[in-house]
Simulated scan of single mutants.
Amino acid sequence: MEVAGLDSDGKEFKNAEEMWREKIGEGDQQKKTEWYQQGVGYWEGIEASVDGVLGGFGHVNDADIKGSEAFLQILLSDCFGADLRNRHLVALDCGSGIGRVTKNLLLRYFNEVDLVEPVSHFLEAARESLTPENGTVSDLHKVANFYCLPLQEFTPEAGRYDVIWVQWCIGHLADDDFISFFKHAMASLKPGGFFILKENIARSGFVLDEEDRSITRSDLYFKQLFNRCGLHLYKSKDQRGFPQNLFAVKMYALTIGMPKKNSRTRKVYSHKPAIIK
């Protein structure tokens, strides 16, 4: 991965391999485990609220959801077309936090949503929020499973998901675990299913945050990793409406192969609706 970068202390690295060797070692499982534990430990000290999970930038929530919804609508129409109405849609929300994306977006489009999140008090807040009593779920649109696991230890159920949503969490995975996660998760997609990855984007190379143990990768860095995963970049879109002082945010639709084009009239939906760590 020939992309130079730096960490939040200003130390420069000639490439990502050099940085990962220093931070997590080569084949040193204990050092790697400690790295991940420190990342989860950071978030265990954060309040289980929208402002907390968005690093103090809770005011971007509405723009984030609107941007995600517009992208999701296009992809559901492209990939499923006329079959959409008759399809029992199931999504996986990776790094779900308090269930912000599930509550505000996914439950309006998917019949079932599973959440996976390593920070236990975030997941408990999601469990409390996403109940019929709070009016956020129904018999037709519900949360099915809550998994308290980090992504590098989670293997999704084979053939279960139409969409796997990965937002503001993949930066916690080292490159080898990034690749391993997506390769395992491919088997959990239904035919025609796809990933949506939404992440902060570095202008070039990478920026490693020593405080929460996460990496912000450049667009080129991501594309190199997608290639190593064996994923096809079907479509991408920039998030709009965020303050200028935050990292740029990009959405990627990733498929195992090129989706078949559906011959249909595009459906019009009527739904209304960092520096992020």
Rank of each mutant, 00 (worst) to 15 (best):
V249P: 05
L233Y: 09
E199M: 07
L72F: 11
E210Y: 00
P118Q: 02
V116Y: 06
V113H: 01
K277D: 12
N227G: 00
R85I: 00
G159F: 03
V163L: 08
E157L: 12
M251P: 04
Q37C: 14
A174T: 13
V207T: 08
Q244M: 07
F222V: 12
L105N: 07
Q244C: 03
G230F: 09
H88I: 10
G58R: 08
L115P: 03
K250Y: 06
V50H: 09
F195M: 04
D114N: 09
H59E: 14
Q29L: 10
S263W: 14
E22N: 12
A185M: 04
L92C: 10
V119F: 12
G5Q: 06
M1A: 08
M1I: 00
K235G: 05
I215H: 04
V116H: 02
G97Y: 15
Q239C: 04
T102R: 13
E18S: 00
G159R: 08
V137H: 00
A174I: 14
K183M: 04
Q167F: 01
D219R: 08
Y269W: 03
A16D: 05
A91E: 07
H271A: 06
V249N: 04
G257S: 15
F247Y: 06
G95T: 13
D238V: 12
K190F: 08
L76A: 05
Y147T: 14
D175V: 15
A91F: 09
E112A: 02
F146A: 09
R213G: 00
K250R: 07
K11R: 13
S138C: 01
L151R: 01
I196A: 05
Y36C: 02
I196D: 00
R217F: 02
Y147V: 14
L246Q: 13
V119T: 15
